[in-house]
Simulated scan of single mutants.
Amino acid sequence: MTPIGRHLTTDMYGCNRDHLTDLEFVKSAMLTSIKEAGLSVIDIIDHQTEPQGLTIIALLGQSHMSIHTFPQLNYAAVDIFTCGDYSHSDRVITILKRFLKPEKTRTTNIMRGDFGLQKDMKPRIRVSIAPLRRMRNTSARVWRFLRNR
Rank of each mutant, 00 (worst) to 15 (best):
C15T: 07
V127A: 05
L23M: 05
L31V: 12
T9N: 06
R136M: 11
M30K: 03
D85I: 00
S33Q: 01
I110K: 13
I95Q: 00
T21Y: 01
K122D: 07
F70M: 14
I95A: 00
R6C: 12
D120G: 01
F25Q: 01
K104Q: 12
I42L: 14
G38P: 06
G38Y: 03
L146V: 07
A29M: 02
L146N: 10
R17W: 08
K122W: 10
R17M: 13
I129C: 04
D11T: 05
F70I: 15
L132K: 01
A37W: 03
T69H: 08
V92Q: 01
D18N: 10
C83G: 10
E24K: 04
S28E: 11
T69S: 13
S63G: 11
F70N: 13
K97V: 00
Y13Q: 13
I42W: 06
I129H: 06
D90V: 06
R124W: 08
S66F: 05
F115W: 03
S33T: 05
R124L: 14
G14S: 12
D79S: 12
S128Y: 08
K27N: 09
F115T: 03
T32Q: 12
R149E: 00
H64V: 06
V41T: 12
D90C: 05
T105R: 04
T49K: 09
L20W: 08
D18S: 10
K104G: 00
L54P: 03
E50N: 08
A58C: 10
I95R: 01
Y86H: 11
E103N: 09
V26Y: 04
D120S: 12
A130N: 05
G53L: 12
E50Q: 11
G116Y: 01
M135W: 09
T10C: 12
P71E: 07
T49Q: 10
W143D: 11
L23T: 02
R112C: 14
N109F: 13
A77H: 15
T2E: 13
M111D: 09
D11Y: 13
G84C: 08
H7S: 08
D46K: 02
I42P: 01
